[in-house]
């Protein structure tokens, strides 16, 4: 699929602020099933943009605005082409039970920080256990949305898995964090993915207002002795496909937040953010 993505974020401050420093992780990644044809970031007030790749390989764009200002807009435009990943192959559990797998999975198989001490986690581990790692991944994307309600507003950006368990509801970020915790308990290396998801409300739309999205990738044997990261979306009960446009990955949300910033000034601020994705490879269906 071909997409034009526009991700526009606007902050307004009640009184002027200074030294506004931000780090963006918004550029779609380049990989086998995804290529970036065009990518532009505009910041107002104007600022010099510095780019580097972080530890996880995500491009980070940093900028600072020192002079007093009462608004900040970050306008990101990208054109991306995606293709459907190859169908993953099924292998048995033994394929991931050796030191070579642990070495390849590295930190993605280790717990991140202290975990909530809930019996329900043990129960979920049991419920998601499948015949094979791949079967487990497929069960994962069903069990989580079965057991938890997708509802915005009950959790916030800093919520933990414990918060999701307590509330019984959450959003894609929480679902992804829970899936990661469970997969790691199964001994499967798993990482958090931040990106954009093409999710039109009807099938025939060519353009849709969406939001940044989170899913996961699990490290599975590919049958030919190698290992492959397989994307899975526990919010949408599906494995990753050409609708998923990946920005980057990490152990958890905090490793790949789309925008992170600080500024000097006690002023309150209001935020509006929108992501619009437009299919550029289909002609819009003209209304009758």
């Amino acid at each position: 699929m071909n997409f034009a993505i526009r991700y526009l974020t606007e902050y307004r401050y009640e009184s002027p602020v200074t030294d506004n420093l931000n780090a963006l992780r918004v550029k779609p990644a380049t990989m086998a099933t995804q290529s970036v044809e065009d990518f532009v970031v505009r910041v107002d007030p104007e600022a010099r943009l510095n780019r580097h790749l972080d530890y996880f390989g995500t491009q980070v764009i940093e900028f600072g605005i020192s002079r007093p200002h009462d608004h900040l807009s970050i306008d990101v435009r990208a054109r991306v082409q995606t293709s459907t990943p190859a169908e993953p192959l099924d292998t048995d559990w033994e394929a991931i039970e050796d030191r070579a797998y642990d070495a390849a999975a590295g930190e993605f198989v280790l717990p991140v920080g202290p975990e909530p001490d809930h019996l329900i986690l043990d129960e979920l581990v049991g419920d998601t256990r499948g015949e094979s790692p791949l079967a487990t991944l497929r069960r994962m994307v069903e069990v989580i949305p079965d057991r938890f309600e997708y509802r915005a507003g009950v959790t916030y950006v800093g919520s933990t898995v414990g918060d999701l368990l307590a509330a019984g509801a959450g959003v894609c970020q929480d679902f992804a964090h829970l899936a990661l915790l469970l997969l790691r308990r199964h001994g499967i290396g798993a990482r958090y993915v931040s990106g954009y998801l093409w999710a039109p409300s009807t099938d025939d739309e060519a353009s849709a207002e969406v939001e940044t999205h989170a899913w996961i990738e699990a490290l599975l044997p590919n049958g030919s002795g190698g290992l492959t990261w397989i994307a899975a979306d526990p919010t949408n009960r599906t494995l990753g496909g050409e609708s998923h446009v990946k920005i980057g990955h990490g152990r958890q949300y905090a490793d790949v937040p789309p925008i992170k910033g600080v500024y000097r000034g006690a002023a309150g601020s209001s935020l509006s953010a929108s992501v619009r994705m437009t299919r550029s490879d289909v002609t819009p269906i003209s209304s009758p």
Binding site: T18, E46, A47, R48, S66, R67, P68, R264
Partner: peptide
């Protein structure tokens, strides 16, 4: 210099 003065972008 908490209050910075406008600096031109190079």
């Amino acid at each position: 210099a908490v209050q910075p003065v406008a600096a031109p972008l190079a």
